[in-house]
């Protein structure tokens, strides 16, 4: 990337004028927010690990009966793909491909995000069936405090995409809309990053032979 980077994530670039310079403080602030959010996740992970033992499971269902590795793998790939498509949306924004192109990539990302959530809901339903419910043990409480927290974030991200689609349609690509798209991109990529920790620690860790 050429010079003139003012903030984390892909920059709009100097050719965007005021939208580019105005993004500096806003995106930096959002980045700080994300770091605060990362700390929240970190602590929930730590709590999960303190409960991931026989004492925390209190004789209830274990992870082996409740998790479905195939489905988690599918979710992981879908989310990763959505990160890529979101990247393309940001590129379309940076290179001024127009609203159409941006909206198309956003829609694809939204679709993938919803697909992820659908699969995750199916997994949750299965867990409830086999008795892996938060009311059962400290371990399942910790699980249900962690993984759905990521899911809720992702759902918020989906809602945000919808709002941005509406704003692009009504307001056009004004500077405020552009910086919001940049922030949404950071949010989306960060959720994928946290998912890496989720599948590594919770799912792979729980299913380790």
């Amino acid at each position: 990337m050429s010079g003139g980077n003012l903030h984390p994530g892909l920059n709009l670039g100097d050719h965007h004028g005021k939208a580019h310079s105005g993004a500096e403080a806003v995106v930096f602030g959002f980045w700080i927010f994300l770091m605060s959010d990362v700390v929240i996740f970190g602590l929930v992970f730590a709590s999960y690990l303190t409960a991931a033992n026989p004492m925390g499971m209190a004789g209830g269902t274990g992870p082996a009966e409740a998790f479905d590795l195939g489905s988690v793998f599918a979710q992981t790939v879908i989310l990763l793909a959505s990160s890529l498509t979101f990247g393309f949306a940001t590129l379309a924004l940076r290179h001024e491909d127009g609203r159409r192109a941006i909206a198309r990539w956003l829609a694809v990302s939204l679709f993938l995000g919803l697909g992820f959530l659908t699969l995750e809901m199916r997994d949750f339903a299965h867990m409830i069936e086999v008795g892996a419910v938060p009311q059962r043990s400290g371990y399942w409480s910790a699980f249900w405090g962690l993984v759905p927290l990521h899911g809720l974030h992702l759902a918020a991200g989906c809602l945000w995409i919808v709002v941005m689609l509406a704003q692009m349609a009504t307001l056009g690509l004004v500077p405020a809309v552009k910086t919001r798209l940049l922030r949404l991109g950071l949010f989306w990529h960060c959720l994928d990053l946290i998912w890496v920790a989720v599948f590594s620690i919770v799912y792979l860790g729980g299913l380790m032979p």
């Binding site: 990337m1 010079g3 003139g4 980077n5 003012l6 903030h7 984390p8 994530g9 892909l10 920059n11 930096f28 980045w31 990160s83 990247g87 950071l186 990529h189 960060c190 994928d192 990053l193 890496v196």
Partner: peptide, 17 residues
């Protein structure tokens, strides 16, 4: 992810991040 999606690198300009 940090390097390729979030574009964090070691260049001078983005030290703050």
């Amino acid at each position: 992810h940090l390097r390729f999606f979030l574009h964090i690198d070691l260049s001078r300009q983005k030290r703050e991040d």
